[in-house]
Structures are given as C-alpha cells and as structure tokens.
Design a binder for these strands. Structure first.
Lengths: 113, 113
DNA sequence: GTTATATTCAACCATATGGTTAACCAAAAT
DNA sequence: ATTTTGGTTAACCATATGGTTGAATATAAC
C-alpha cells in the first residue's frame, strides 16, 4: 500500500520533471485541451507530444476522453494534490509552513472583503 | 530568468521522483544527517548513496558541510517550497485549493486547543 | 470514394539514469 | 606507522528517457 503510493509518487514527480509536460499541465489547468491544442506551443512532432501526454496519463495526472477523432485531455487535480501533500508534510518540519499558509490565507481573505 | 527557474524545477522534481531520495529528504526533514546515516536504511553501495545525494544537491534540495571526514547534509526547505508553490498555482485553478487549505487549517487549530 | 485531419504506434537513436565494483583520498583511531 | 572509517571518483552496464521519422488507424469532409 505504501509501496503503491510510492510508485505513484515516483511517476507524478517524474512527469512533472519536464518543462514541456509542466507547460501542458499549466494549459490544462485553465481548461480541457485537445492533443493538437496541447501540441501547438511546441516545436515538436505530434508523436513526441503524444508520448508526453502518455507520461502524464501514466502518472494519473491526466484523463483522456475520445470524441470522434479528437482526444480531450483534462487535468486530474486530485493527483496533483497528492504531490503537494507529500511536499508539505516534509516542508513543515522545521520551516513552520503552517504559519506561512495562515499568513497567505489572511492576505487572501483581506482581498476578498 | 523563467528558463532558469524552469531548469531548477526540472531538477527539483526529478530529484523527488525517486523513492530512495524521497526517503532521504524525509530523514533530513527531521534533522541533519551524515552520509552514512542517510545510507543506513538502504541496501545499496555507498557509492550509489553518494550519487543520490549529489542529485539532491544539484537540485539545491540539500546543502552539505564537511566536518573532518564526515559530511553533514541538511535539507534546503526553501527549494522544497519552490516546488510546492508551482504545484499550488496550478492546483488552485479549478479545484478550489484555498478552501481546502482553510479547512485543513481549521482542523489543525482545533487540535491545538 | 477519395482526401484531409487527428492521433497513435513501432522502430530507431543518442543521451541520461540508477546501480555496481574497484581504486582512491583524507581524517581518526590503534 | 598502520589500519579503519567515511566518503568520493571513475569506469562500466543495463535500462529508461526524450526525441525523431514513417507507417497505420479511424473519423470527418468534399
């Protein structure tokens, strides 16, 4: 179970360790994207793009639905937050992260009012 | 500048994409560790361990100070939070992460009292 | 029915990664 | 002075990664 989670984290972090893929995540964070939309900003073959998407899929960061001949990719933010959770756990140990978060939250609240 | 940061993120995420290295981060989150302390839980040659530490160093996740013949490694939480920051930026887009954080914070607060 | 579009798959290639062993170096301990 | 200890470095190896091109598939458009 822990190992399962570990393998999962390996794949998530590996998927994020590439600028192209991070940019794709960025795009999908805004809204769903087709494969060619995702490909557009890059000077890379579509086959290359396809491979990158598969890495994101394997990490469960992206889900794909096929609609005719176009594939639609959407971000799985649940998975993204798995990574965040891991990071925060170890960050908070001596850097008192919770204080910082609280501070950021206060700022956010103030802006709302 | 953005590219610099991008290269930085590549290395951070790559460093974290390995269970052994994550476990090391975990150990260093508790307290500073010597190389052999870091090596202890693993069935791996010291040379292998040394390489892992170097990956963490290259990502600027770890700083090393040499004391006689023993090297002391400590976590650079600043770098860790660079990764967190990236993640949170894209997480919050549709998953309203801030609400979740607020909730977690409340729970934490309650436990304190 | 032919052509164009959206996308994957397979084979290939250079380079990177994670590991090993063996040799090396410097500080401590005997 | 010799040996142990803590650690790195170099050379090597198998496998993974990130990219390419070329062919294949299937839907959509003409």
């Amino acid at each position: 179970m822990v190992n399962q989670n570990n393998e999962q984290l390996n794949e998530i972090f590996h998927a994020l360790a590439d600028s192209t893929r991070r940019e794709m995540v960025q795009m999908m964070a805004e809204r769903e994207r087709t494969v060619s939309e995702l490909a557009e900003p890059f000077e890379m073959s579509l086959a290359g793009i396809s491979k990158h998407i598969k890495v994101l899929e394997r990490a469960n960061l992206v889900e794909r639905s096929i609609n005719g001949r176009t594939h639609i990719c959407r971000l799985n933010t649940e998975t993204l937050s798995q990574a965040t959770k891991w990071l925060q756990t170890y960050e908070k140990f001596w850097n008192n992260r919770f204080d910082l978060l609280e501070y950021e939250l206060m700022k956010a609240k103030k802006k709302e009012n």
